[in-house]
Design a protein around this nucleic acid. Structure first.
Lengths: 238, 238
DNA sequence: CAATCTGTTAACGAATCGGTTAAAACCTTC
DNA sequence: GAAGGTTTTAACCGATTCGTTAACAGATTG
């Protein structure tokens, strides 16, 4: 009863699909079969993101993806072609998501130092909240960006941030608060790297240095250090 | 004929093993069979390093490792137990190698700024020359350091670098050239991250920003930026 | 309501996976 | 030179892998 509300609330055109699926999962007989093409597609994408992030491309299992998506395995192939094409679809959506989040930042509304601080904090927060994004990128790099190479519309979406950061650096240098001659792409990669490495390699680092680097205190310390490092560098005019 | 020299040059106790193996590979009949336990062990480790680095733990194939090591597959299990134990052995050796290289650095013989510069340059160079180390760590982190947790003698070997960096920071602060209050572990992680991210994610970064970040010029630019970032931060006393 | 397209299903199959068996060949020791 | 332990081999195994087949059911259109 309450379950039904969920389906309707989502505004699904074929709302009954969700209910039917829930019934079928519970093993009820006389399950009402219904279609939900769009829903099936995103359920597969969600399940695939989780699976690829958890086990990598090589360790991911299509059967597990299908099971978690509550879809027939054949559907993966119907919608995406094969395992690798599905991986690319997952990757493209992940990039799309972070770029969308970046767009909302409006870094040029504040002073240059504050703008940089916000970019550092955002990057940190985003990686922290989306660990799957990190492992996904690691997988893609393991395969030398083989999938991304086949993708279009990836290059276009990624420039804006660099352009914005470049403008911040220009303004800061003009105002005399920042040093001149800093390359925006290099700095962007640095900010990303400072957060990425700590989080992506958190497990081995914690093990090797015998500290719990996932603890709240360690995280706060890290963000503070990153911010100090970047702003300290930029405001040192020698 | 010249081949034989290689075996002797290596100082192998059972030198004939190498020759026999080479003959067998070439498919010669009446192949002289010989034993070489130590050699077999390291050939397996080398082959496994390559395979795990190339395909990750999940994507690695034991048959391929055996083939490349020119050993029977049974030997992997004879010496290491199973695939995962072999992975741990490879990982342990990789850590051992980088710590050994770090020991040779003698960073305290030079001025603090120069010491930091050398550490940055070394880290960069080492990652550049050992890309397998990066992908290996990525794999281990994907699995949440599951294997490393079982390992002993990992924690002990990793402290010295942090201690040395701590001493450099102390001396620099005492001399008034460095800012005070910088945590050695945080800075070490930062230096590593600045190099690691650029190299480990080189493929996706190059793709996404439409630049060849593996080109010599891009590499030099990166090292220069990293060095400036770290020293610029440390020498900014505010 | 018939024809047609789209989405979904169960079942299967060939290839490959990590791991094992059982026996043989090499090497050391006495 | 025989005994006994260590290293190596070929063959094999059951489970699992990704991907496919063929038929069916819901939706759409005339």
């Amino acid at each position: 009863m309450a379950k039904n509300g969920t389906a309707e609330a989502r505004g699904a055109t074929h709302g009954s699909g969700v209910v039917a699926r829930a019934r079928r999962r519970r093993g009820a007989r006389h399950a009402v079969r219904t279609r939900d093409p769009a829903g099936t597609r995103i359920r597969i994408l969600d399940a695939a993101l989780r699976e690829f992030a958890r086990h990598g491309l090589g360790g991911a299992r299509v059967d597990r993806i299908a099971a978690r998506a509550d879809a027939n395995k054949r559907m993966l192939y119907y919608y995406f072609g094969d395992k690798e094409a599905l991986f690319l679809a997952v990757l493209e959506r992940a990039y799309e998501d972070i770029r969308t989040a970046e767009q909302k930042l409006r870094l040029l509304d504040v002073a240059p130092v504050e703008g940089v601080r916000r970019l550092v904090a955002f990057t940190w927060r985003y990686y922290l909240d989306h660990p799957e994004f990190l492992t996904l990128l690691n997988s893609e790099n393991l395969h030398r960006a083989r999938h991304l190479k086949r993708s279009k519309n990836i290059r276009a979406t990624n420039s804006p941030v660099i352009a914005t950061l470049g403008e911040i650096l220009r303004r800061g240098a003009a105002a005399g608060t920042f040093r001149a001659g800093v390359d925006a792409l290099q700095l962007y990669v640095s900010i990303a790297g400072l957060a990425y490495f700590f989080l992506s390699n958190n497990y081995t680092l914690s093990q090797v240095f015998d500290r719990d680097l996932a603890a709240p205190a360690a995280r706060e310390e890290r963000l503070a250090h990153m911010t100090a490092l970047v702003t300290g560098f930029l405001t040192n005019r020698n």
